[in-house]
Amino acid sequence: MRSTLEAAPTGPRPAIRLRPVPRFEPPFDDEATPQAWASSRQLALDWPADVPGAPAPPEAAPPVVAGASGDAKLAVRRFVRLCVEVLNGFRPAAHLRRMALPAGAAEVVAQGLAGARRVTALRKDSGRRTARPTPVAVLKVMLCEPRSGAVETAVTLVTGERTWAIAFRLELHQQSWVATTLVIV
């Protein structure tokens, strides 16, 4: 069996030869062992534990995660979409009940209903009678996860020339994200 392929030259070009690939490729940069750069000028800060005034060794702290988890972001997206549909009149405010903690479901639904009424009043006060009123749209969503299993969100909304906001908190209860608080400003 031949390991090379040769093509006959058809002019001024040389013959093409394909050679087999080596069995092992060189390691990637992230696979190479890191090199330690020792310096004679580097100051060693090895504090003895029994010296008074020496700092205590650091305790193992839980890892800090930047931003919110993917599950929290997905739950926020679903809840914001549901709220916007309620505010635009595509859904009744009672649909917020299934996404709320049972203890606070009445307050969440009441806030959604008040927000939908406010949007309706804004549309009537605008004086323009159009076939399609200006829908409520999301301008910005800001969220943080202060602890695992809880996410707090502020959403900036716009309808027509009016800008307003909603704030809510979602918590993870029995493997599902539920709203505990909803405030429409």
Rank of each mutant, 00 (worst) to 15 (best):
V84H: 10
A165L: 04
V141M: 05
T130M: 06
V76C: 10
A75K: 12
A93S: 15
V138E: 07
A121S: 04
V158D: 02
T130K: 11
R132S: 10
P146C: 07
T153V: 15
P133E: 01
A93E: 14
A167H: 03
L74Q: 05
A154I: 10
R128S: 05
V151T: 11
L157A: 09
A68Y: 06
A110P: 12
R97T: 02
G104A: 12
T156L: 15
W164N: 01
L143C: 12
S148C: 04
G115M: 03
Q111M: 15
A94M: 04
D125N: 07
V109G: 09
A105Y: 08
G127M: 04
R123T: 00
T120P: 00
G160F: 12
H95N: 13
K140L: 10
Q111E: 15
A105F: 09
C144I: 03
E152M: 11
W164S: 07
V84F: 12
P135Q: 06
V76E: 01
A105M: 04
M142G: 10
A72Y: 14
M142E: 12
L143M: 14
F90N: 13
K140V: 00
A110T: 13
C144M: 05
V141Y: 08
L122T: 00
K140G: 00
S126G: 15
D125E: 13
A68H: 03
V158A: 13
F90K: 10
G112F: 14
R147P: 01
R123L: 00
A106C: 02
C83E: 02
G127T: 00
A121K: 09
V155H: 14
K140Q: 12
S126M: 03
V80M: 05
